[in-house]
Design a protein around this nucleic acid. Structure first.
Length: 464
RNA sequence: UCCCCGGUAGCUCAGUCGGUAGAGCAGGUGGCUGUUAACCACCUUGUCGGCGGUUCGAGUCCGUCCCGGGGAGCCA
């Protein structure tokens, strides 16, 4: 007898008229006289397996009749073709053992639709629902597909540090990491905290980006990528922001902005296509229950080249489109959500890459263009979700980089190592950052980023 | 952080002009040899987010705080 067969395997192989054993959770139960139909899922796939139980089971009245949604069971029986509509095969139980009960007066999940808002309050259980389980499987697949994409192309994964002692990485508020006793902080003569007594002998934080460290290894191994957690202490309360999220950051030596954009576009299309090919059941669920337009929107991304337009062109389009925006458009301003939405959704109707932003609104490490007022930056804007990728060609020229850092008041003493990359064997290089959860949002159609990560961290909220 | 909306049974929600609490689902009991969100009958379930105020009377009106959602800013 086959033990511990997973339902995904059973539904694919359909080992008919064989005795098998499954383990899973009861999704729903339907009873007639002396007969019960149990829908069992084990998490391996969206679909459940129908188990047919009758009174000949020794524990039919003592156990089987008392089963409710959420109970975990082991079922041993014969897999047969189903005589009724709705499923191809079913398992005729010869033995049912209860692993664990789920008292219905306290178990929060019911045989009905719950709001995502409610499910967030039971984050430790919500993976058992169809939709959140599907999100978890898609997330896992996308994670794997990211490694596939880069490894197939000869990129090396670099584990950049989670704890950083760079004062400023130019990407938002940081979480402090300390081993000091916060109730009894050591002070120096000036009255400020004496970090020389802290664990690292200097201030430390959680990383807001692995880019700078990735640059170091790009200038050693050529093509590298990072994929790990990232932390921002911004007080952002939106459906697109987390305090802890996962970011993918490729970095390539001997690579310009054009190559960077090509890679980003190829990667996004690869990831979407991979998900459609390998998570069919989950994608069908999202199309049915989450967003009816999802298949068309994904197909639209796959079928067309992304529109590429410079910031200067984008500003002209926005000024001449005849719309009045809440934030007026002028060359030099940062594009607002309403502007980005117009570009991606109305003007182009597909992903747009906006390039060559004004130097004044972008970080110091982006490469200055020959015009002296723009930098070789690119943002990829997706319809419905906004910025999903931000990238640039990096400033590889020592003098120009040092000047930009001084202008931006970056403490050079902490970045000598970064300047060394330009002092010794510098090379043109470029990279970008992809917000992993935003990608999952786009692929699944899920509206709130808190529902595409198992245990979301947001301002004022990190239950579990 | 700002703007808007919301918080009523385990869940999803209704609750009129201020007059004393409702439905569906879930759960329980019974019925039905094959159900598919099973069905039929009956039954159970309340700190109306907290505190304060107005009123003869507050789920309803006012103030305030807490929590959640949507949007904005910032970003990925």
């Amino acid at each position: 007898m086959e033990k511990r067969l997973r339902i995904k395997t059973i539904l694919a192989a359909k080992p008919l008229d064989r005795e098998i054993e499954i383990h899973g959770w009861l999704k729903s139960k339907r009873e007639s006289k002396g007969l019960a139909f149990l829908d069992i899922t084990d998490g391996s796939t969206l679909a459940g397996l129908q188990v047919v139980a009758d009174e000949s089971l020794s524990n039919f009245t003592t156990d089987v009749a008392r089963l409710t949604t959420g109970c975990s069971v082991a079922v041993r029986g014969l897999l047969v073709a189903s005589p009724a509509k709705g499923q191809e095969v079913e398992l005729h139980a010869r033995q049912i053992r209860v692993h664990g009960w789920a008292p219905p007066d306290s178990y929060p999940l019911q045989k009905k639709r719950h709001t995502f808002e409610f499910l967030r309050s039971v984050a430790h259980l919500r993976g058992r629902t169809n939709s959140l389980g599907a999100v978890a499987r898609v997330r896992s697949r996308l994670s794997w597909a990211i490694h596939l994409f880069f490894q197939q192309r000869g990129f090396f994964q670099i584990h950049t540090p989670i704890i950083t002692t760079s004062d400023c990485e130019g990407a938002g508020e940081m979480f402090t990491v300390t081993a000091l006793d916060l109730d009894r902080l050591p002070r120096n003569d000036a009255g400020s905290v004496d970090y020389s007594l802290d664990f690292f002998g200097r201030p430390a934080s959680l990383t807001v980006s692995g880019q700078l460290e990735a640059e170091s290894y790009a200038l050693a191994l050529g093509n590298v990528y990072t994929f790990g957690p990232t932390f921002r202490a911004e007080n952002s309360n939106t459906s697109r922001h987390l305090a802890e999220f996962w970011m993918v950051e490729p970095e390539m030596a001997f690579c310009d902005l054009e190559d960077d954009m090509d890679l980003a576009e190829e990667m996004l299309k690869f990831l979407i296509a991979d998900c459609l090919a390998n998570c069919g059941a989950e994608m069908d669920l999202f199309a049915r229950f989450i967003d009816k337009d999802l298949p068309a929107r994904l197909d639209n991304v796959l079928q067309h080249p992304f529109v590429r337009l410079s910031y200067t062109e984008a500003v002209k389009e926005l000024q001449n489109c005849g719309r009045s925006f809440t934030f007026p458009v002028a060359w030099g301003i940062d594009l607002q959500s309403e502007h980005e939405r117009y570009l991606a959704e109305t003007l182009c109707g597909r992903p747009v890459i906006v390039t060559d932003y004004p130097q004044s609104i972008k970080p110091f490490y982006m490469r200055c263009n020959d015009d002296g007022r723009t930098v070789a930056a690119m943002d990829i804007l997706f319809p419905g979700i906004g910025e999903i990728i931000g990238g640039s060609q990096r400033e590889e020229r020592f003098a120009q980089l040092k000047e930009r850092m001084e202008q931006a008041a970056i403490p050079l003493e902490n970045y000598e190592w970064y300047l060394d990359l330009r002092r010794y064997g510098t090379a043109p290089h470029a990279g970008f950052g992809l917000g992993f959860e935003r990608l999952i949002q786009f692929v699944t159609g899920m509206g709130n980023i808190r529902d595409v990560i198992p245990f979301p961290r947001t301002p004022g909220s990190s239950t579990i």
